[in-house]
Design a protein around this nucleic acid. Sequence first.
DNA 1: ACTCAAAATGACAAAAATGTCACTTTGGAT
DNA 2: ATCCAAAGTGACATTTTTGTCATTTTGAGT
Lengths: 191, 191
Amino acid sequence: MARERKFSDEDLFLATKELLLNHGYEGFTFGLLAERLKVSRSALYKYFGNKEELIMEFMMYEMDQFMDKLRKIDDYDDFEDQFNYLLELMMSHRNIHQLIEIGRHVPVNNKKMEEKNKKLDGLHLNMYQSLVGFVGLGKKEGKLKPHIPDTLIVGYILQSFLVPNLAQIPHSEWVQSMKEIIRDGMFTDDN
Amino acid sequence: MARERKFSDEDLFLATKELLLNHGYEGFTFGLLAERLKVSRSALYKYFGNKEELIMEFMMYEMDQFMDKLRKIDDYDDFEDQFNYLLELMMSHRNIHQLIEIGRHVPVNNKKMEEKNKKLDGLHLNMYQSLVGFVGLGKKEGKLKPHIPDTLIVGYILQSFLVPNLAQIPHSEWVQSMKEIIRDGMFTDDN
DNA sequence: ACTCAAAATGACAAAAATGTCACTTTGGAT
DNA sequence: ATCCAAAGTGACATTTTTGTCATTTTGAGT
């Protein structure tokens, strides 16, 4: 027995995501978000005490969604299949890395935040472990170069998806080339 | 016949750089900058009318410095040498790409800004052309894969240096591995 | 049709950042 | 030594963002 809400959680988190990516953590304001949702600013305070809290909730939502998909990487036994799955996944969550970086800027003031922050750290750890597992498998199968640090491999893959496609190269060509660079580099074989 | 300044242009631009990288465009304030320089906030208004103007000046300063070095790439005839020079250069100006992205957030309000913005665009174009020239040489010498779009190659090289070295891998090892990934990828040869 | 709890609002006070200006300080030039 | 232009300051008015709260609106349940 309650009134219908004017915006769903999905609406809210989507708007939050766009604003965060366009304006950064410090440029994100409740005013902007309320405007986007066509709601009064004070309505938002019914759900989140402040900016930090909202952004933390958003991060968890985003990470949960991403992790649900990332965990599916273990459905594939073969490294090659995992690799393909991972690239597709990253392509559809291009900015997860960027968002995580923004999340690191959120100040932790009180106990409540402390807790949320810990939870989020846990999710990051999960993600990292999942990716390190992937790299481990690749090395074990002899597919990935053993002497390159795991963290660099993981970081490089994540970072790849942030290269801006300024020249508007068609999607499939872009992904194809990207995959090739990641696998075999940009130099020709005879070097 | 004037009083000695309490801070040099270098001081100011260095502080600006750090603040921009740590807080982003919207999080950068005159208050923070003044505090950093141990000067009153109003002193800064003697030199820059507002935040946008200051940041534009900073961008030009930074780009000028970078371009001076980037242009030296043409001192090397051989692509291989150009490649090595470029990686070293990028390593010591790791965040130039990030700064350029931040610069794109600066709103252009008036004629004066319009002009500065044009000048900055010119510098970006220079940078881009210089890098495209480099890629062109690489392709001509048969070193770079001809079917990968120039913009992707350029973007990749720039982006690579933003991979955070979270595990604190020693600098030389990090650069070495990075170079290898860029050249030949992360997969072993027998794939 | 009435109730009432959740949803939404607008108005308010406080905090933070901006921009301006009259005034003070400083140190090289005379 | 003293002049004075540039450097720096503190106080003020304005704007933007934040956070709170009393009040109003809404619509599902009865």
